[in-house]
Design a protein around this nucleic acid. Structure first.
Lengths: 245, 245
DNA sequence: TAAACTGGTCATATCAGTTGTCCATCAACG
DNA sequence: CGTTGATGGACAACTGATATGACCAGTTTA
């Protein structure tokens, strides 16, 4: 029988992992200075030498840079430092990004279907609110705001489906997407014309759900993801995986 | 800004968690004697006092029982000891079992569709092998064997879909199912007539995939899960959730 | 019935982490 | 421009966790 060797994690590794996750999740922006070592140690409830050991590890990996007497700063290029196992899967399998979209086509279609079927007035209000936020973001120069509203729109639909397991899975996948490990979503929103197209697709999904037309909602959601899939495939032709993922 | 307190796990807790997972996953059956402390300590690559501390924790929780000079044994009633977060979700939401099946209807339909579309000769051979194992198990009195083959059949189909993300999600959900936290699957297989029906449905899925008929495969897989869903709903009427979950 | 194997206990050594202190550098302010 | 405060850098001493090794008591097996 196979027994796994037990490896106890060093405290400094646990600290490093926590700080890395906080950086990835946006708690600290690139270029931002971290709280002082003394302050961080108190907040994380660890000793300063242990914290310093962790900070050193992150610095060695290029995530941070420290200046004697000046503080500790977050460096750029964070996305590719991720260590999440699923992210690792995506990174080791260039095909996985397309697989992800393919799965989402099915899941989002299902979510839209049941949202149209079961959504309450409150659900429809929430979906409309997130769609209105997309429309508002559409007028901005910065495409990342619209991309973020996009994620919120899909979560609202999954919530309206009233299927807890689906919501759990969709949330997990969207959280991964938010970390930008699948593909650079900004590419998707880079051109205003492309953004116009995405907005129309979102509008179709929204209108079908509000109208209570389950099958139309499913079709619209799947058409939307099929379009995203096509863009994904186009982008991959001639591109190194690293440039996209 | 909110900072999580860092809590380093004790070695004995890590050992306990590993042993618990092995027990839950069937590495040790109820009533079975564990390897000796000296042997386990070597295999897990930890010291004997640390292992003993872990075993003591599991004994206090009722998972194990030790006899001076006689060995350490696995006790019964393990399923309710689970701490997996998703399992906790299911336990706190009696509706989640039906949600799970509803999601699987979509995921299994998708898996069957792509398995029929993309499956290689090796994939079809693997699917046929697992289906043959179901047929062989069908003739046995013990329905749990057939239920286990059922899970392997669905995993083989997900593998044949050649979508890594789908496979990952399906594996995760099937692993949860294997832990029996969703519903007592034995109910599903309790009556020979019910088992006959499930076998026919599996056969329809198998035949459509082997024939390369993607849409028929999807329909068959979804019909199968719709039937399971119906049985789930019937069983829930008049039953306390705990009796089923 | 004795030997081997098991669980039970514990002294000692080693290692990881904490506490506390001090030094060097840098930034802000008067 | 000098001083002060805040920052990173370093380390000795201490504490707690874990490992090593040895021995005792109970059970099983040959």
């Amino acid at each position: 029988m196979q027994f796994p060797k037990i490896r106890q994690e060093r405290l400094s590794d646990a600290i490093a992992r926590t700080l890395e996750r906080m950086i990835v999740e946006g708690a600290f922006a690139a270029g931002e200075r971290l709280p002082s070592e003394r302050d961080l140690a108190i907040r994380l409830d660890v000793s300063r030498p242990s914290l310093r050991e962790a900070l050193h590890k992150l610095e060695v990996r290029g995530l941070l840079e420290t200046r004697h007497g000046g503080g500790t700063y977050v460096r750029n290029t964070l996305a590719q430092q991720l260590t999440d196992p699923l992210a690792d899967l995506f990174q080791r399998h260039p095909q996985a990004g397309v697989d992800f979209i393919e799965l989402r086509k099915t899941l989002d279609g299902m979510a839209a279907y049941y949202a149209a079927l079961r959504g309450s007035e409150a659900d429809r209000a929430a979906i409309s609110a997130t769609f209105d936020a997309i429309v508002a973001a559409h007028g901005l120069d910065d495409p990342t705001v619209e991309a973020e509203r996009d994620a919120e729109f899909h979560i609202a639909i999954a919530e309206a489906s009233h299927n807890l397991v689906l919501l759990h899975v969709v949330r997990g996948l969207m959280d991964l997407l938010r970390k930008d490990v699948l593909f650079n979503r900004d590419i998707l929103y880079a051109h205003p014309h492309a953004r116009d197209r995405l907005l129309e697709q979102h509008r179709a999904v929204h209108d079908a759900i509000i109208a209570g037309d389950a099958e139309a909602a499913r079709q619209a959601a799947q058409a939307h993801m099929a379009h995203v899939e096509d863009v994904m495939r186009e982008r991959r032709i001639g591109s190194a995986p690293a440039a996209v993922a």
